[in-house]
Amino acid sequence: MSELVAQLIWNGLVTGALIALVALGLTLIYGVAGFIQFAHGEMVALGAYAFMIFHKLLHWEILPAALAAVTVGVVVGLIIEKLFFRPVREHDPMIPLVLSIGLSIGLQALILIFFGPNILTISDRSFHSLSIFGKKILATPSQIWAIFLSFVLMGGLILFLKKTKIGKYLRAVASNRSVAEVFGMSTDHAMQWIFGIGVGLAVIAGIFLGFEQNLEPLMGVHMSVKAFSAVVLGAVGSVRGAILGAFLIGLAESLLVGLSIIPSGFSAAIPFVILIGMLLVRPEGLFGRRFENLRR
């Protein structure tokens, strides 16, 4: 029994770590730019497909291929920000939101055109699972890397936002754009940073997701639904909240289904049930300030 629980917790942590990487980008973009980027899930798919091209088709080693995929992702993120979101940034937040929905559908269609509807594998190599923690848990090398790297990246991001000059400047723009501009901070610049970081994290999640579940054109959509729930659960715009929300959803899915607490057919509803419950009990999210004090 204990082995079952240990394995379920591990599965939940892997899922949670991947959701967290995607949720961080969503929450950062919301925090600084002020809208929910619905095409963020497609960045996950972009990362996975870009990695597949470098690694499987061009036969690059894993690390250079991953770095190349992240570079492609960051560049695409910067282009998307400049081409699509910068022109509408000063408008009602509804406009970039609707734009991002359109972008999401367009990017899915592009993946379908170039790669077709079939499932693709991310690597020709197969990796043997390892027994870890006193042989209680079976884990693939990519899962161990996913958990390790996501913790490093999450810690790094929090430190980056807290300690570095650019981090402080991003937080300044997030908390009050007009005042920050008065002090000579460029909003354009902040947006570029946020989209670069956000898409970079989503690409990394996409690569790991590709190792976990293979590649399909809609892989980003399923992920972004969970990431979106994690963001709302934690408090929209909060970095710690997104991370905690992501792990809560990952673990809840794994444990509730794995221990037969709820029938497995309802597993996809878990993020939403948590989300609805949270909105009823504490609508501002785990780390949110009370709405009355919140002024944008």
Binding site: Q7, L8, G12, T15, E212, H222, S254, V257, A268
Partner: peptide, 10 residues
């Protein structure tokens, strides 16, 4: 859905 790890573990 495309994550079956939990169901398989179970």
């Amino acid at each position: 859905e495309s994550d079956f790890k939990t169901r398989i573990t179970k």
